[in-house]
């Protein structure tokens, strides 16, 4: 019989969060905040596209995509969170110095290395820009490794646009095209849904990788527009949202047919999940 006790065999469980402290806090829009969190003891490195399970003590835990990934375990982590529920609301309301619990990194990442040498088109709807920001930052940092890079971004109204100062900065190096669903004066920009920007974006369909995140209906029409341009399904990458309670493939909540979104995703190609997303209520 085994001589080691269970607690010796299994020293630490995957459900225990690491403490992080709120170091910076910025309101992006009426309901969205960007928080910079510093690990109290040890943190973790995150690849672009991965997410963290973020815990508010006594309230609950939700999956949050990382908008500013730490390259090394001790680096701070940046999260952009929209206050839509009890937990996300409590995260956004966290004051400077507040303690949150984080588990991660969870899930897979955007295939940015595979996109090297080709063109990149980032298509984001609303808070969907948050998990795509690391892709944009990567292409800016490695500008010579990529061909044409464009960001197509849509929000409901001008007041809902995230990272407006950064969008201006990015414009000096890469193409940035912004649209809103509805606007009043003095908005002089585009009005319309984001998939409409795909038709005029600068990229070579045979050499582009598309990185897409937003509401599922927005992703559906973005895929149609990309297909019309001749982009193959294998190079249309989508980041999906599902209910997640464990973040490590054990609780069942994030199932999408054969796949567990927290374990196998959240990033998939349209070739992998297009048929599944087409089934209502799957």
């Amino acid at each position: 019989m085994a001589t080691a006790t269970p607690s010796e065999l299994h020293p630490v469980g995957a459900f225990v969060p690491l403490p992080f402290r709120v170091a910076e806090r910025r309101q992006d829009t009426g309901d969205t905040w960007t928080l910079t969190l510093e690990p109290e003891e040890s943190g973790f490195a995150v690849e672009p596209g991965q997410f963290a399970m973020v815990h508010v003590f006594g309230v609950g835990e939700v999956p949050i995509s990382v908008s500013g990934p730490p390259e090394r375990p001790g680096d701070p982590i940046v999260l952009t969170v929209r206050a839509v529920g009890a937990v996300s609301g409590a995260i956004c309301a966290s004051e400077l110095g507040a303690l949150l619990g984080l588990r991660g990194p969870c899930g897979n990442s955007w295939p940015i290395a595979e996109a090297t040498a080709g063109d990149v088109v980032v298509v984001a709807g609303g808070i969907g820009l948050a998990p795509l920001r690391p892709v944009v930052l990567h292409t800016l940092a490695q500008r010579d490794s990529y061909g044409a890079v464009s960001v197509l971004y849509g929000a409901r109204t001008p007041a809902d646009l995230l990272y407006t100062d950064q969008l201006e900065e990015w414009r000096s190096t890469i193409a940035v095209d912004v649209t809103v669903d509805a606007a009043e004066p003095p908005w002089k920009g585009k009005v319309g849904v984001v998939p409409k920007l795909v038709a005029t974006a600068e990229f070579r369909p045979e050499a582009v990788t598309a990185f897409v995140c937003g509401p599922e209906v927005m992703m559906h029409f973005t895929v149609q527009a990309l297909r019309e341009r001749g982009v193959p399904d294998e190079r249309i990458m989508l980041s999906l949202e599902r209910d997640m309670r464990c973040g490590i493939g054990l609780c069942g909540h994030c199932q999408l047919g054969p796949t567990l979104v927290c374990r196998d995703g959240p990033v998939y190609s349209q070739a992998d999940v297009g048929a599944l997303l087409g089934v209502r209520e799957l």
């Binding site: 459900f15 006594g58 309230v59 609950g60 835990e61 609780c251 069942g252 909540h253």
Partner: peptide, 22 residues
Amino acid sequence: CSSVEDTSDLAGVETARERVWD
């Protein structure tokens, strides 16, 4: 399948996380 529940004392000093069948 499982879910998680969080509990707290009234002051929010002691909290706990439980896993339950779902």
